[in-house]
Computed example of a mutant assay.
Amino acid sequence: MPGSTGKQGDENRIEGGQVSQRRARADKRSGALASAVGIIGEVFMTLAVICALYVVWQLWWTGIQAEHSQLEARQASSWSRPSGGGDKIAQPQKGNPPVQPGKAKTGDLIGQIYIPRFGSLWQRNVVEGTDAAQLANAGLGHYPTTQMPGELGNVGIAGHRSGYGEPLAHVDEFQAGDAIVLRTKDYWYVYHYTKYKIVLPEQTDVVAPNPENPTEAATKRMITLTTCEPRYTTATHRWISWGEFDYWAKVSDGVPKELAGGKTAGVVFSGKSDDRSLARLSSLQPVILILAAAYIIIYLSALLAWRYPVLREIKSGRRPRPYASIYGWLIRHQSGIAPVRWLLMLLLVLMAVCALFQWGFPWLASNVPILQEMSNYVAF
């Protein structure tokens, strides 16, 4: 009957509308769930990247800062360059070596050390004292209770094995006979590596005047390098490297033959090891300011030329409304066409990374107990 057919059609339309509403609600719930999962994933991904960046900061950037501090110390000193600018071989001297310096205060630059096994440009400052500030900022530290260079007994020197320039990272690569060259203001002291030992932290007799027989008086001149073991985890032990004195020479005569191979690399004030531009940075604040200025200029220029094309397309319906996303929101709200938006995002990321290196990670390493224990961080 005609009446019943119309009624059935109305019912079908009502039922279809209800189905459409249910689908719309289901799609909305599905979209909300997908957005929530996506945002959670982005948060975890961001945290993972921050953790990785923290490792980079600890192992690399603290080394750049330590190198900057050492460079400043060298530039502030009145030490002269070796005769011949590093190309002249100094004549080994006979007899007992002079002792230099006779005494030093905590933080004083007492020497520089060269170990060719660690690289042709490898050099580190040696300052008086082994507290956290000296080992983090100044290079290597001389144990105040041990002998000075040239003195009968044992020159004890400590340094980090990871982070802060990791000066003693590769002590496990030493080979018998490797040169360990210590320079003071006026003299070279040349030692040769002999052996190593892994000990507990409380075994302090390894830096005794006579570490081979700690209860007996010193009979020869030695050098001891102490560092952490294992390298990348909590240091439960100490890696001890010993060397014995070979000869001494005058800085005014040139450089020891152990540091000369064609043109000498890594000689004090030769200039080669001081040319790293990053080591000249005392702070990342200038970099952050440059990045911020570049971002503002590009952002405003793109805003005038293109405004926000993605937002315009979404508003007009030419592009579907995307799921909620932290990074998607940031990209959509950059002005300009796609290449410009990605460039702006890159500048934002670089600014964020520099800010973490400059302020975020130092704060975490100074205030979070587990990170304090892991990093032994000392502000520069």
Rank of each mutant, 00 (worst) to 15 (best):
Q203R: 05
A32R: 09
R319Y: 13
G102C: 13
N154P: 11
G336Q: 04
V206R: 01
K250I: 05
S375K: 02
E258M: 07
C51A: 09
S78D: 08
K315F: 12
D205I: 13
A76Q: 11
Q334M: 12
G102H: 07
E42M: 10
P339D: 07
T106D: 12
T219L: 06
F269R: 03
W122L: 07
G129M: 06
V378L: 02
Q134T: 03
G317N: 05
W79V: 13
W248E: 00
V199P: 03
R231L: 10
P101D: 08
I50K: 06
V251H: 00
V251I: 08
R332K: 14
G165T: 04
N210C: 09
G95V: 15
S20K: 13
I39T: 00
A34E: 09
R124P: 04
L59H: 03
F361I: 05
E67I: 06
S69Q: 03
G41F: 13
T145L: 14
R183Q: 10
D178H: 11
V206P: 09
G63C: 07
G153M: 02
D27K: 14
R312L: 10
M148G: 05
D246Q: 06
K197T: 09
R161E: 05
W239S: 08
I89T: 00
G328K: 04
F269Q: 05
Y327F: 14
V353Y: 00
